[in-house]
């Protein structure tokens, strides 16, 4: 069996609408991950050690269990508790919450990565604590984590096909369905793989430039 360009052309519109869903889910999920990650980080810095530890383990639980299972949980279990979500909404929430536990770790490590001397210099200048955070620590931490946060955007993009596990017709699912109708799966799946590789390679080049730009030391 050989490659059929006409057929490839026919399925392309289906794939492009799948790609739109994939991109939408990735970007919306990313916004959730960025914001919720900050919440996790702050919740682990409260005065109560027990509370911090509890939050830490909840985040650890989410981080070390499969996204696909969590998606299924959100999509299949929550309706039983009276919260019915569309597959896409469930997917975006699942993706965002899962990756928020990663961004939380990035924020934490970024703050810890600011050299001790910076804290000491700020203390020596007798700056108020709020000021130290706002004008010394956070700006430096932010620079450090930008490339890593970029990595996680790509990671989420590449994890978005899991949404087909809860019936979302994203890029991979659209290819699968288009191909299953005609029993010709070579072209659609190859196009999908190629699309993913192209997007990943291009974005990894962008990240590398970010890394150079925000390189520390």
């Amino acid at each position: 069996m050989s490659w059929d360009w006409n057929y490839t052309g026919e399925i392309l519109p289906d794939l492009l609408s799948g790609l739109r869903i994939t991109i939408a889910a990735t970007l919306l999920g990313y916004v959730i991950a960025l914001v919720l990650g900050l919440v996790w980080t702050l919740l682990q810095r409260t005065p109560s050690r027990a509370f911090n530890l509890a939050v830490h383990w909840v985040a650890e639980f989410i981080r070390s269990t499969p996204l696909l299972v969590q998606l299924a949980f959100v999509f299949f279990v929550l309706p039983g508790w009276g919260l019915t979500l569309s597959a896409l909404t469930a997917g975006i929430i699942g993706l965002g919450v899962h990756y928020s536990t990663y961004t939380a770790e990035v924020y934490r490590a970024g703050i810890a990565d600011v050299p001790r001397g910076q804290w000491e210099a700020a203390t020596a200048l007798n700056l108020p604590r709020r000021r130290v955070w706002r004008s010394v620590i956070l700006p430096q931490a932010f620079r450090r984590v930008i490339p890593t946060l970029g990595n996680y955007l790509i990671a989420m993009f590449k994890d978005s096909p899991l949404l087909m596990g809860i019936t979302v017709v994203e890029l991979l699912n659209s290819a699968y369905q288009a191909g299953a109708k005609s029993l010709q799966l070579l072209e659609p799946l190859t196009v999908v793989a190629a699309l993913f590789i192209i997007v990943s390679v291009v974005s990894s080049l962008i990240i590398r430039r970010l890394e150079r730009r925000y390189a520390t030391n």
Partner: peptide, 16 residues
Amino acid sequence: GQPELRTVAAGAPGVG
């Protein structure tokens, strides 16, 4: 203690 930024970045299933 907890992993450093380089480790966190390196484990990212993105491009790290």
